[in-house]
Design a protein around this nucleic acid. Structure first.
Lengths: 165, 165
DNA sequence: CCGATACCTCAACTTCGCTCGAAGTAGAGC
DNA sequence: GCTCTACTTCGAGCGAAGTTGAGGTATCGG
C-alpha cells in the first residue's frame, strides 16, 4: 500500500475493539444477516468502515428492546452497493420513532402512577393501562421476551381484593 | 362452605385467568420464589387474593425490562405474614423509580437525536450518550440480555468514516 | 358414586443472543 | 523463513423465561 493510503477496511478484531462488540457477536450478526463482509484470499473477514455505523445502530436498537430479526429488517432498507447517506439512515431510524414515542409515554405513565396504583387496587389493572401490554409496543418492548401475544395481565380487577388499612 | 362465605382463595386456574398469566408461568414464578401458595390436602395450590396484586407487579416490572431475580428481591421487601398495605407497595415500587427516570431520559434523548445522530457520525458514539450502555440502567434495560458489563458500543468514533454527500 | 375437568410432578424442549473451546490457517514483524 | 498473534469453522453450552407432554391424582357437579 502506498503511503497515505491507509487501509479503509477493518479486521474483525478492529471492528470488535472499536464497536465494543465481541468478535463472536459480530460473526453471529453476520450469520444472522445484520452485517456483511468481504473475504480476503485467506478467508478472513474485512469490513467496510461503514459497518461501524451499522453495528452502532444495532446496539442502539437492541437497547430499545428490538429483537435482532426486526433490526435486520430495518437495515434491509439501506441501499446495497452504495454507502448510505444521512438520509438513508434517517429513513431507517424513522422506523423506531413510533415505538419510541409509545414506549416513552408508557414509561412516563408508569412512573407517575406506579406506587399509588399498585397499592390502591388499580394495578389489579384492566382500565389502568399501566401494566397493559395489549398494545403492540409493550409486547415488543423490553427484550427477548416475546410475550406470546394474548392479553397478558388483563382482566385482573378484583373488587374483593381491597388492601387493608 | 357456608353460603355467603365465598372462598377467598384462588386456584391456579383462577389466578391464571384473572392475571392473564399461564399456569405454567405461575408455577415457574413460585419455583423462582416470586409468589407462594398453600397446599390443599390433595396437594393443590391455593393462592391468597393478594397474589393477584403480586403477579400484576411482576408483569409490570418485567415490562420495564427487569429480570425476575431482581423482581424477587424487590418483592422480598414486602412483609411476610401480614397483607401488604399501600405503603408497603409504595416502598417496593420506589425501587424502580430511579431506573424508570433514567430509562425515560435515555429514550427521550434517543428519540430526539436518533435519526440525525446516526447519519451524522455522532452515532459512532463515544460522547454521544445515546447508545452508551455503560450506565447500569441500560445494561439492565431491555430484557434478558445481560450485556456482559464492559463498555459495549463505546469508543467507536471514527474520523475516517464520514458518510458521503 | 361417577365421570369430567382441573390439578399435580418431572423431565425435556424452545427461543434468543450470544460465549467457549478445539483444531487448524493467515498474515505481519523480525 | 520463522514465529506469534489474529484469524477461521464447527459444535456445544449457557441463562433467561418459560412451554409441552407424559403419567398420575383431586375436586366438583349431577
Amino acid at each position: 500500500m502506498t503511503p497515505g493510503t491507509i487501509s479503509r477496511e477493518l479486521t474483525i478484531g478492529q471492528l470488535a475493539e472499536r464497536s465494543g462488540v465481541a468478535p463472536s457477536a459480530l460473526r453471529f450478526y453476520e450469520e444472522s444477516g445484520l452485517i456483511d463482509s468481504r473475504r480476503t484470499g485467506g478467508n478472513q473477514r474485512r469490513y467496510r468502515r461503514e459497518t461501524l455505523r451499522r453495528v452502532a445502530f444495532i446496539r442502539v436498537s437492541q437497547n430499545l428492546g428490538i429483537p435482532l430479526a426486526e433490526i435486520r429488517d430495518a437495515l434491509s432498507l439501506l441501499p446495497n452497493g452504495r454507502t448510505p447517506t444521512p438520509e438513508d439512515w434517517a429513513a431507517v431510524s424513522e422506523r423506531w420513532r413510533g415505538d419510541l414515542d409509545a414506549r416513552i409515554h408508557q414509561l412516563t405513565q408508569l412512573r407517575d402512577h406506579l406506587s399509588g396504583c399498585i397499592g390502591c387496587g388499580c394495578l389489579s389493572l384492566r382500565d389502568c393501562a399501566l401494566a397493559n401490554p395489549d398494545d403492540a409496543l409493550a409486547a415488543k418492548g423490553p427484550g427477548a421476551r416475546r410475550l406470546t401475544g394474548e392479553g397478558a395481565a388483563g382482566r385482573a380487577r378484583d373488587p374483593e381484593d381491597e388492601p387493608p388499612k
